[in-house]
């Protein structure tokens, strides 16, 4: 295994984060703080409890997931798209690194950034809303699993995209709507029965439900199902990336 290669990619990507600190970290934290102020404090104080949890506390796992998903996709897709766009990918393709090492470097860095951001938002939320975490181990597990899975998904988008527009289209038109409709701000039990059924086709529902369970011990879908769905998506993404590197699709042809 080319450990120096993995370290080089990882450090390069992390350096990019710290070079763009305001964009990578400060902006998402500030935006989420505004959510807490508006939804948690201003509107939340006029809403009742959901499953015996205050509205402000209820939206915390959903908001963290919203950022985790967006940042994971955005970090990883940008990370691999930039060398393609700038032409510096020639060096990566000609280097003695395997596809799994490339993945560990890029996806590892993207997931690290997302987890850092998730923990920062969690800390920020504490300023506005009191909450506790019932299953901290599981909370970390969901955080890591989601960050890795969606960083992998972002990596695929970065490989597929051949313009900045395509790079933005999946996060903006798919990931964000799915997160908003995945129960970030409400319980899916608040929906009419038909929509409760339809919403179960949204994979983000399982992520938010599982993550919220790790906080408050209450879940809208079975926790095992949440874990299974996320792990399944992770395997699907891994298989696709393996195929891309094996065939050279869009990169070596």
């Amino acid at each position: 295994m080319n450990l120096y290669g993995i370290r080089a990619i990882y450090r390069f990507e992390m350096a990019r984060t710290f070079r763009t600190l305001s964009q990578s970290i400060i902006a998402p934290v500030l935006t989420t703080s505004l959510y807490f102020i508006v939804f948690g404090k201003a509107i939340g104080s006029r809403m009742g409890q959901i499953d015996n949890i205050s509205y402000g506390a209820f939206i915390i796992p959903g908001l963290i997931m919203l950022n985790l998903l967006n940042e994971s996709i955005s970090n990883a897709s940008f990370g691999i798209y930039m060398p393609k766009w700038a032409g510096t990918i020639y060096e990566l393709l000609s280097a003695p690194v395997s596809w799994i090492e490339v993945l560990i470097g890029y996806v590892g860095a993207a997931a690290t950034k997302s987890v850092m951001l998730g923990l920062l938002i969690m800390g920020t939320a504490r300023i506005f809303v009191p909450y506790e975490i019932v299953h901290p181990g599981w909370m970390i597990a969901f955080l890591l699993l989601t960050a890795v899975t969606f960083s992998l998904f972002g990596f695929i988008i970065g490989l597929w995209a051949d313009s900045f527009q395509k790079l933005q289209v999946v996060p903006m038109l798919i990931a964000t709507p799915l997160t908003f409709l995945g129960g970030a701000f409400y319980s899916i039990h608040m929906l009419p029965p038909l929509w409760q059924e339809i919403t179960l086709f949204n994979p983000v529902v399982y992520l938010i439900s599982g993550f919220r369970w790790s906080f408050y011990g209450m879940a809208e879908v079975d926790v095992a199902l949440s874990l299974g769905m996320t792990s399944g998506f992770l395997v699907l993404c891994l298989t696709f990336v393996w195929w891309v590197f094996k065939t050279g699709y869009k990169i070596r042809n």
Binding site: Y4, A8, I9, R11, F12, A15, G87, Y90, A95, V97
Partner: peptide, 26 residues
């Protein structure tokens, strides 16, 4: 390989980019 086009990591320093290349090649 020295490619034909001037493909460089524009935002990196010279020292960082040569270190990156050495690490990438193991």
């Amino acid at each position: 390989l020295v490619p034909q086009e001037l493909h460089t990591d524009a935002f990196e320093t010279v020292w960082a980019t040569v270190n990156f290349s050495r690490g990438l090649f193991g």
